[in-house]
Design a binder for these strands. Structure first.
Lengths: 342, 342
DNA sequence: CTGAAAGCGCTTACAG
DNA sequence: CTGAAAGCGCTTACAG
């Protein structure tokens, strides 16, 4: 990089103080005479001056940067949210740095440390399981942050999420309404609260429809070995003639569903006749499946814009009571549940 | 944010100079006695010291940050690349800030300005059409950057891409091999070189298979009104009994294909019998389509890691001749082309 | 091995 | 309206 021209250079060029140049370049009104201002602007343009935000950040103690930590930026759910956060942040003069935690406690800590040392003004985090202490540490340091998608019931924090219980209930109910009676659950290991809520909703729906829940209907995969464990789980659920075999499946996230659908397709399972399916989140693959997959659509735009809005508010106010914001989620019907009898 | 403890605080706490603290905290070997080093480390831990990277950046003139500009971070192609770049950059001690240009010249300029004023050490850019002058400006400023995915034939720059001509050729050839004879092209307006290369490959394949190219086979959509224009274009291409009607379609990007498949599905077009299909890039939707969509798979991992590698190399060397790196791309067969007769 | 000091490029109270 | 100066938190040549 070629040596950049600084405020000092343009001050020297005009024989004025660096103070006036700074005032003009940072848009302070009424501190400098119109004539001088014009000369400074002209000189700045001529010398190709561009302010150094790093210096400004050091002096002002704020970087106008937000840190975003998600499980995986290449997951469409997070990629979509990232885009909305980017746009909203930019609109308020902020830039976003991001990191993927891969659901790892250590990686999450690593990104938090990185972002803190880089003096981000605030953090937006989709926290992984087992990171409660990291969240508490942020609170202790009074570092502004907001949680998205996930949250910890034991910690009062700003967080933006959907009503996961209700969404899980609606998803399962959609299957039950078509006469499905043995509803499998394909979910994540790890015990994240938002996933547990979806599962609770599912169980409540079973109960309300007079179905007695069976433990063998629930299978779980780990993030790290998702593909293999979904496949093994489905093999169990779909064993022909087995007492535990299932006539419908609720996938609690998009990645579980994508992998699950690949398995169902490979073994030639007919949807919805043999097995009804409902999933979470959007995907082009759901729309283009031979029978479009019914799914819970989270209001991602609201989630992203609210996250930034609440975070900026939090950053502004020393005292700030935690806001828990529930954004919309609706069931998009695609036919994969079967034909409703209600 | 609570007042952070600085190097000065720990120096004062121990009654030593800030210099030694700095040496220890930044890992300079052999400048400080082991005893003092131990005391400093203990004090730093006790006072919960975390280095301020902003101050370090200002002094050292480097931020260990890379800027990434893509068309849209929520597009799976770019989201995937972003993830690889994030991992590779992190491995080398760099953090990534990103911005989506939406194929807009102005937004692209905006992100470049933002990233320059934030003193990023280097840029990775998938440049939009019409941004040649921005690229030249970066060269004039000697700002290190590398282009990915796209490039400008008239400007010598580092760039990482696939052989788009060959990939376009292979894609079209796959359709021709199954006996398809009138091959439609669904592509982008705007004349980006990488897209033009794909189109050229397609035309060359037609020629080599003894088919005479027809202008009416080629339809183009703009980024801003993609959905509508793809639909209108397909309607033209698939008009029954029309002379121009087509028995196969080559989509030159994933977003064109996704939208196109939605249209084909809606109008009940049978793939591959009525219309063969081949696309670019990967998508869960391609794998899960009733007939898996044959597509060109770009070596995204290579593209991302090479981009970072070349950029870091460029940043290190004052003199540096432009590297044009071609990464792999292979055709993943899915059955959507039809049955090969060769 | 250790310290005093200059300086990175800004911002901003304080004088004049 | 304008300028001289302190200071943000580091790094690093220069003395000792």
């Amino acid at each position: 990089m070629v040596k950049r021209t600084s405020i000092k250079d343009v001050a020297k060029y005009l024989g004025v103080s660096i103070a006036v140049v700074s005032y003009v370049m940072s848009g302070k009104e009424g501190r400098v005479s119109p004539e001088l201002e014009a000369r400074i602007r002209a000189a700045a343009a001529e010398l190709n001056y561009q302010p150094n935000q790093i210096a400004s950040s050091l002096k002002r103690g704020r970087t106008s940067t937000l840190g975003l930590i998600v499980a995986d930026i290449s997951n469409p759910f997070f990629a979509h949210i990232a885009r909305i956060i980017e746009d909203t942040a930019k609109h308020h003069g902020y830039t976003v740095v991001f990191g993927s935690s891969d659901e790892s406690v250590d990686k999450s800590q690593g990104w938090i440390d990185t972002f803190l040392s880089r003096q981000v003004d605030g953090l937006i985090i989709a926290p992984s399981a087992g990171t409660e202490h990291q969240i508490k540490m942020l609170q202790k340091k009074k570092m502004p942050f907001v949680l998205i998608d996930r949250y910890f019931p034991g910690i009062r924090t700003d967080n933006i999420r959907i009503d996961n219980f209700r969404a899980g209930y609606d998803a399962a109910a959609c299957l039950l309404k078509t006469g499905k009676r043995s509803i499998g659950l394909v979910s994540y290991r790890g015990g994240m609260e938002h996933i547990r809520q979806r599962e609770e909703g599912y169980r409540q729906a079973l109960t309300d429809y007079g179905i007695s829940w069976r433990e063998s209907w629930e299978i779980r995969a780990s993030y790290q070995r998702l593909d293999q464990e979904v496949e093994e789980g489905l093999q169990l659920l779909l064993r022909p003639q087995a007492a535990e075999s299932v006539d419908a499946i609720f996938f609690t996230t998009n990645s579980l569903a994508i992998q699950g659908l690949k398995v169902l397709k490979r073994i030639g399972c007919r949807i919805p006749d043999e097995v009804g399916v409902v999933s979470f989140d959007e995907s082009d693959a759901f729309d283009l499946f031979y029978v479009p997959i019914t799914h819970v659509r989270q209001a991602l735009t609201d989630m992203g814009t609210e996250a930034v809005r609440v975070l900026l508010k939090h950053m502004k106010q020393e005292k700030h009571k935690a806001e828990e914001i529930v954004v919309g989620a609706d069931l998009v019907s695609g036919g994969s549940c079967g034909v409703s009898r209600v």
